[in-house]
Amino acid sequence: MKKNSIRTVIFIIFVIFFILIVLFPFYWMIVSSISPQVELTEKPPHWIPQEPSLKRFVNLLFGGEGGNAARQRVFVSSLITSVIVSVSTTIICLVTGTMAAYALARIRIAGVMKILVGILIAQMIPMIVIVIPLFLFLKGVGLYDSRLGLSIVFTGLMLPTVIWIMFGYLKTIPTQLEEAAIMDGCSPFAAMVRIVIPLSVPGLVAVGAFTFLNTWNNFFVSLVLTASRAKPLTVVITEFSSQFGIDYGLMATGGVIGCIPPILLTILLQKHIVSGLTAGAVKG
């Protein structure tokens, strides 16, 4: 019994240590965002701000002193852009990606998997080299600096991963059920929609979260492919942070705001993210 309680204590210490290391940077970012600049350069650091203020948040979100209506408009519009682009990218990815994954998992097509792996590997090419052709492509089809253009690009960038993971996930679902449905006179497409899709909801949730996060977090592609009309939040954060030089407090404020949606999503979907991604990735 005694041995067990020592173990428990060690375990608890370990967990606390783990949590501290993971959370400390977040804590410091929040403290930095609410501390006045003069406090940030104190030695030793003020771990708890003496004069915390939400001034920076108010300025960014609502204009406030020194800010203006135009800047706040930019911020709100970028927030809307980020939401629209991330949501629609996720939807298009899930729809087209699942359809493709289903076809690959269920219907024998020679060489297709090889192509898929090829695309996955081709994605390893640095973004820097791809971004200018992408720019030209979007300009060519008249979608530069538009939410639609951005969503199409992100869909393309995310699809190989989505297909790969969904392919792995669909492989874990036994085919007997669909076969039975088809025997009963269901069309293969209907069988997919009615039988397979409901069964793969956990995988869909995980892949959806993954797509959403990656789209939301993207910076470089968005920076180059958008201008004033379709800038997402990550791009605008860096703009605010440099408006007055590189104020660390403001950078931290931008950071906190930019982290809120991904963190909320993670909290809501944590169960599915890990299990879904593991199932897809490991069995793929």
């Binding site: 720019f135 530069y144 920076l223 440099s242």
Partner: peptide
């Protein structure tokens, strides 16, 4: 911002101006 404007300008200019 300073950190990004160089890369943004170069890619914009090389693709013909971007509007």
């Amino acid at each position: 911002g300073w950190a990004e404007i160089h890369d943004k300008s170069i890619s914009t200019l090389s693709a013909g101006g971007g509007g």
